[in-house]
């Protein structure tokens, strides 16, 4: 093998290695970005409101559709009519929010899960 051929072979090997390194580094960067995205998904709280996750199929269609438009205009004069219409809009939304006591602790109680100390009470439930 002449010196020229040897140099050519080395250049070919280098180019080939660069291509392999490019592919490996592309995959590594992609994996890193996916990991970062998943971590952000978990830490941000988005996972908790994501009903497209497995196990939420039955309740997905029970999500209340937000009635639009509901936004109160943020510019314009203030007069009696405006205040009255705002009050109605606010009362309507507020009553929807405060109508039911949410996240009450009873649903996770021993009685609700039927693991209370009194077997008779459990049997009666």
């Amino acid at each position: 093998m002449t010196e020229e051929q040897h140099e050519e072979h080395r250049a070919y090997q280098l180019a080939k290695n660069r291509f392999v390194i490019l592919i490996i580094s592309s995959i590594a960067i992609s994996l890193l970005l996916v990991c970062i995205a998943l971590a952000m998904y978990a830490w941000s709280g988005a996972a908790q409101v994501d009903l497209s996750r497995p196990g939420y199929g039955d309740i997905r269609n029970k999500v209340d559709e937000v009635e639009e438009p509901t936004a109160f205009p943020n510019s314009g004069p203030i007069d009696k009519e405006v205040l009255d219409s705002y009050e109605k809009l606010y009362d309507k939304t507020a009553s929807q929010v405060t109508s039911v006591n949410t996240f009450e602790s009873g649903v996770l109680s021993d009685e609700a899960l039927r693991i209370n100390e009194d077997p008779a009470a459990t049997a009666n439930q």
């Binding site: 409101v49 309740i59 999500v63 929010v97 949410t102 996240f103």
Partner: peptide, 10 residues
Amino acid sequence: ANDALLRVNR
């Protein structure tokens, strides 16, 4: 599951 729904709606 119900909590998730409640969380979204609320």
